[in-house]
């Protein structure tokens, strides 16, 4: 089966992420569903880098990518108001993360001489995708500094885990990306719940409830799709019904 190219997925993720952030910036919190594509794009690039046998684990790549993305988003929020000018904010975040991600990739390729094809492209894609997700999450949760480490960790886990869990001889892009979608829905669900708790009002705000409901629906659909793929991919090693014989 033909795989989706990095360029196509990243292009879609970039447009979708920007659209999501602008929607959230204008008070339409449900725009968070547009951030699911950046999750897929980042997980796809972790896969692209890690399948060549890095000198580091999948976890490190996820942590590194999210560190670039999150740091860009956090730092940019100091000077560019994410609430009043969401478009300028997203432009600043994308520019900063793109420069740092691309620079690190080029250094890993040219100075450290890692022979991984398209390492600079994948680095930049992970950095920008995670930066978009962080920026969206910051808009939802507001400038509550205590939640910054939490935002960073949940995004990191959703980005690094899909390939880490699917890796092996029978790994394929479709299953890995479906798992990434499962984790994207799970992450937005958690963000919705935290936004509800952090709002401090006695009654949950309808925007936050909408995030939780849509994410929960997405989660159910994605889990069912992923489970079907797992079942169809494991038919070859299904138990025969006989216990192992002693020879």
């Amino acid at each position: 089966m033909k795989e989706i190219s990095i360029h196509t997925l990243f292009g879609a993720a970039l447009l979708s992420g920007i659209a999501g952030i602008i929607l959230i910036g204008h008070g339409i919190s449900i725009g968070i569903v547009f951030l699911w594509l950046p999750f897929l794009s980042a997980a796809n690039s972790v896969r692209g880098m890690a399948k060549y046998g890095l000198g580091t684990g999948n976890a490190s790549i996820g942590y590194w990518g999210a560190a670039v993305g999150a740091t860009s988003a956090f730092v940019a929020s100091l000077s560019v108001s994410c609430r009043s000018t969401p478009f300028l904010y997203v432009a600043a975040v994308v520019a900063i993360s793109l420069v740092i991600g691309l620079a690190t990739g080029v250094l890993a390729d040219k100075v450290i001489r890692m022979k991984i094809p398209r390492i600079e492209l994948n680095s930049a894609v992970i950095a920008v995708s995670t930066a978009l997700i962080t920026a969206g999450s910051l808009l939802i949760l507001g400038s509550n500094y205590g939640l910054y480490p939490f935002i960073y960790i949940i995004i990191t886990l959703a980005v690094l885990h899909p390939y880490n869990a699917s890796t092996g001889a029978g790994e394929n892009q479709k299953r890995t990306l479906t798992l990434a979608l499962v984790e994207a829905c799970m992450t937005t669900l958690v963000i919705g719940i935290v936004a509800m708790l952090a709002s401090g009002s006695a009654m949950p705000i309808s925007d936050d409830v909408a995030i939780v409901v849509v994410s929960a629906c997405g989660l159910v659909i994605a889990v069912v799709a992923w489970y079907r793929l797992v079942k169809s991919d494991t038919y070859e090693i299904k138990w025969t019904g006989y216990s192992p014989a002693e020879h």
Binding site: S60, W64, A67, V68, T71, F74, A108, Y148, P149, Y152
Partner: peptide, 18 residues
């Protein structure tokens, strides 16, 4: 703290390639 942790993670993964 979180920015320092970010800088730490960015720099600590680069040597792993070596």
């Amino acid at each position: 703290g979180i920015v320092a942790a970010g800088v730490f993670l960015i720099n600590s993964v680069l040597p792993a390639y070596v």
